[in-house]
Each structure stands twice: as C-alpha cells, then as structure tokens.
Design a protein around this nucleic acid. Structure first.
Lengths: 222, 222
DNA sequence: GCAAAAGTGTTACTTCTACACCCATGA
DNA sequence: TCATGGGTGTAGAAGTAACACTTTTGC
C-alpha cells in the first residue's frame, strides 16, 4: 500500500539537484564586503561565484546552508536567513539545478582565513563586485534588499561588528548597508532608544585621540 | 571534458523531488479565504492541504507555480509571488520532497468552480482554517505575513477585487488582510493619494440604499 | 596649537491617529 | 420616517529631517 502510494504519487516525477548558495556579508573599512570564490574548478573555472553546495539526503536546506558557511569560514551559529529559490531551467548551464540562496552576516575578524584560502575565497567590496556566474548577481541583489529592510526594522546589524564597537562604527555599518550617509545626531538619538545597546566604561583610543565609548549588544541571539 | 565536469561536480550528489505549494487567497464576505484541497488521494487522504504539484524538467519553479494555479482555477496571469522554500528532511513523511511555496491573490468571482470541484477544492475562511498536512500551516503563516507587509507598501490588493468596487469593499479587504479594523476617514484620506485608483461615474446600489461610487485600478500589471 | 574624531539639542515639517456628524435613499 | 451604509475635516501626537558648535587629546 505504501509502495502503491509512492508509485502513484512520487515515482513518476523528475528529481533534481538542489543547491544552496550563500551570500556572506562582512563589514570592513566602512564598506560592505562579500566573501566570494574565485573558482579554481569547473564549471566556470576562473570566474567569481558565491559559495555553494549541494543538498544531501541527510540535511535540511537550512543545515546545508550552515554547512556551506562552516566549511568556508569555520563559523557556526551565525545569523543566516533564506533569501529565495532560483529555479530557471538553464540557470546552471551544466545541469539542471534548483538553488536556494541564503544570506549570512559575519564579523570579518572571526572567520578562518586558512579555510577561506583553501577554497580560494576572497573578500570583495560590494562597490567593486565583479561579474558573477549564473544568477548569482540576482541573488546578491535580493539579499541586499532584504538586508536593507531588516537592518532598519530589526536588530540584526550586530552580527557584522565585533563584540565591542563605537557608535561611529555602528553608524558606518548602517551607512554601508543602506548605501547612504546618515545624520550623526539623528542616528544617535535613535540609537539611544535601542534597548539592546549598552554603553560600557571602556573607551576605544585607536580611531581617535579623544577616544570613543565602546558599546555592546545585550540581547544576544539565544 | 564536459562529461568529466559533470562526473566530478554534479553526479555524486543526491537528487530530490521538488514541489510547489500554492497559497491561494481570495476575498469574500469581508473575509480572507484560502482555496484548499480536501485530499481524495494519498498520501494523507481525507486531510486538508494546499494545492501542490511537482516540478518538471521542462518548467522553471515559477512556471510550475503558474501551472498548479491554472490547473486548479483556470486562471492565468495572476499575481503570484514566491514565499520561501521548505526543506526539512521529514516534512513529507512519504518521500523526501523540498517544496517552494508561492502565494496568489485572485478574485473569487473569476475562478472556475468546475475545475475546483474536480480537484475537491474548497474556499475556507482563514478564521476557520482546519489543520493542514505537512508544514502547510507554516507556509500559510509566512505567506500571510508577506501579504500584510506588501499590501501596505505596494498596490497588490486589487488582485482580490472585481474590476469595479466601492471604497467600503476596498477597506474591508484591507481590514481582512491586516486583521484589524481601520478608521474610515483616515483610510479614505490615504486612498485619495493613491494615484492608481480612479473614481468612476457609476454607483453600486446593491450594498446600500444611497449607493456608493465605484472605483477601478488604472495601473494594471502590464 | 591644531588636526581629527567625539559628543550634544532645537526647530520646522510631515505623517499618523483619534474622533462625530450629515446625506441620500429604499423600505 | 427611519434604518442603512456613504461620505466628509480638524486638531493633537509622534516621528522625521535639517542643521553647528564645543570637547578632548595625540602629535
């Protein structure tokens, strides 16, 4: 009976490769960066692409995304969110592959450069994005639109920053994400009302002579 | 060489069934409704589910969604948008299937009741949603959240209404989507600034004795 | 002493919200 | 004539946007 069901309901249908592509954002020197692969393997050897991987039987889609990120950066428990699925017939000229895009926010200081080098991965400024293979540019665009929306509505930005940071850094991150400059006083006024931000007693003296108070996030994702 | 690539890069990976599930919203009697299937087939015969279908080799994901909707309603060129993909390992207990959800907005008057009957499909009030199979409830919830967001930011609501409609109907639709009542004067103030809304000379005398002016949308999705 | 980044309030403007009454008509 | 839904404006509150100067300190 169960076999019967499978025959009727599933077996006549086609099966497909499913992949996950990760848009990995980092924040460095007042700019958003993406961790991209300079492919030293086929297909599209020599071209730039997002990090990707195939769905395995033993994984959920979300788990695949986490694995792909972990394999490249060594990081676990990172903010990640599904962006959408891309299913055009010839999106991958090699084979029919349906891909689901995820975006991740990481603190550039935290990732493992050795692992990245192993995969031939490089941080690339968003403003200097090279041509990407397949529909990866679309994925990036969609992820960026979501990121812009989410950073204003929610408190996800902290994933891009170190544990302690100055308000100037915080503002620069917002400016990098939104792609526009913000008024310092208005920004700080809004920040003052964020109850998940906490001023510490420590000062950062690296970026300025006077020194700026360091802040941290209280509500960590637990 | 190309074969070589395929061997290395694709062939070792698993392949999966991919399905599309459609959350079909309609608006009727001041309420949002969903077009659901009372399954007269296995798996989960006798239970309620969204309309779904499997991805075929010859279709993109979007095309599958359109086909599924067309097969059930007879409608084409309908507002549809991807909601997200669901890839938990055991979401479908019968087989491993990764499903992408789409939501559609249709005018209940337009669909083909014969086709629906053939599929054992019924309009169900959102307020009286029965238990759904698999993760279909999650899909509905996610679609509804998106719908709420989009209806306020964009002008997608018209897909639920007939060509001509009164402002009261229009408001009721918003109220149904947002799940809360709105102030009539504030609503009309906002409506007056929607440049895609056009007042006609005609009046609807069915709903009230005085009669209400009928409106239509100018910017159709072309 | 000066360059460089840190820090700090007020005002105008726009948007949002709350709220109550008259109108036209069919029954 | 009255019950029903259609239609209209205003005032206070909240939020957003524009704007400039003083402070600290390493060099």
């Amino acid at each position: 009976m169960l076999e019967d069901v499978k025959t009727n309901y599933y077996k006549d249908n086609d099966r497909f490769y499913i992949s996950v592509d990760c848009i990995i954002f980092g924040f460095h020197k007042e700019e958003l960066n993406l961790l991209l692969i300079k492919r030293n393997f086929n297909p599209c050897k020599g071209n730039w692409s997002l990090v990707g991987g195939f769905l395995n039987k033993e994984e959920s889609l979300d788990q695949t995304a986490q694995r792909v990120l972990r394999e490249l950066t060594g990081l676990d428990n990172v903010f990640m969110e599904q962006v959408g699925s891309f299913g055009a017939i010839d999106r991958d000229p090699g084979e029919r592959v349906v891909s689901t895009a995820y975006y991740a926010l990481i603190n550039i200081e935290d990732y493992d450069p050795e692992l990245a080098m192993l995969h031939n991965a490089h941080w690339v400024k968003l403003s200097e994005l090279p041509p990407l293979i397949f529909d990866h540019k679309q994925m990036v665009d969609k992820a960026l639109r979501r990121l812009k929306r989410q950073v204003t509505n929610q408190s996800i930005g902290y994933n891009l920053l170190p544990k302690l940071f100055t308000l100037s850094q915080f503002q620069q991150m917002y400016e990098a994400i939104l792609g526009k400059s913000l008024d310092k006083r208005n920004f700080r006024k809004k920040v003052a009302e964020m109850e998940f931000l906490e001023k510490t007693d420590e000062k950062d003296k690296l970026c300025s002579k006077r020194g700026a108070y360091l802040y941290r996030f209280t509500e960590m994702d637990d």
